Simulated scan of single mutants.
Amino acid sequence: MNGSIIALLRYQTGLSQQEFAEKVGLSFSVLSKVEAGFLPVSKRTKVKIYKVCQIDEDFMELVKKMSLYDKLLEGN
């Protein structure tokens, strides 16, 4: 899960960075750095993000596979 995916998920919740950060247990500063790709996301934080966004790991695996598929198509 990269920062742009997290930003997209946050956007879909309709929450500001501050609100989202509070719900997942991060500071605004840390969430901002995660969304910008400067900090990685821990497994624990990913689980909290899934809960806040009401999604599960299977959904995120599908998103990951779709992203890889798109990259393969771009290469052809």
Rank of each mutant, 00 (worst) to 15 (best):
F38S: 04
S42Y: 04
Y69I: 08
D58K: 05
V52L: 04
K33T: 13
F38E: 12
K46M: 06
L72N: 09
S67L: 13
I6M: 02
V52M: 04
T45P: 01
F28W: 10
F20G: 02
P40V: 12
L31D: 14
V24R: 00
S29I: 15
S29C: 10
C53I: 00
G14L: 10
Q54C: 09
E57K: 12
K23L: 12
L9H: 01
Y50L: 04
Q12C: 01
S27M: 09
E22I: 13
S16M: 10
E61G: 07
L9E: 09
L15P: 02
D58N: 09
S4A: 01
L31K: 10
Y11W: 10
L8S: 05
G14E: 15
Y50V: 02
E22R: 03
L39T: 04
G25I: 05
K51P: 00
S32L: 02
L72G: 12
M60F: 04
K64A: 10
V30C: 03
I49A: 06
F59Y: 14
E74Y: 07
L15K: 12
Q54T: 15
M60Q: 08
L31V: 12
E74N: 08
P40Q: 15
K46V: 05
G14K: 08
K65H: 08
R10T: 07
K64H: 11
F59T: 14
K65Y: 03
S32Y: 00
F38H: 09
K46P: 01
G75K: 14
I49M: 10
I49P: 06
F59L: 11
Q17M: 13
K43A: 13
L73G: 04
L31W: 09
Y69E: 13
C53W: 00
E35T: 06
G3E: 08
Q17Y: 05
M60C: 06
V24L: 00
L73H: 05
A7S: 15
E57L: 13
L39M: 05
K71S: 09
K43D: 15
E61F: 07
L26K: 04
M1C: 06
L26Q: 06
Q17W: 04
C53T: 01
M60S: 05
V30L: 04
G25N: 06
V24P: 01
K65P: 02
S67P: 07
K43F: 15
L39I: 11
M66T: 12
C53Q: 00
R10A: 03
E57D: 15
E19Y: 06
G25K: 03
Q12M: 06
L31A: 14
E19C: 12
G14N: 09
Y11V: 08
A21H: 08
E22F: 02
V41A: 08
K71H: 14
L39A: 06
K71G: 09
V30M: 03
M1N: 02
L15T: 03
T45W: 00
V24D: 01
L31R: 14
V30G: 01
I55V: 15
E74S: 05
V24I: 12
C53F: 00
D58F: 03
S4L: 08
F20V: 03
A7I: 11
F38L: 13
G3T: 04
E74V: 11
L31F: 06
E74R: 09
M66S: 14
K48T: 07
L39D: 07
K65W: 08
L26P: 10
S42M: 07
S27E: 11
K71D: 14
D56M: 08
V52H: 03
M60L: 11
Y69C: 02
T13P: 00
K43S: 05
A7D: 11
L31C: 14
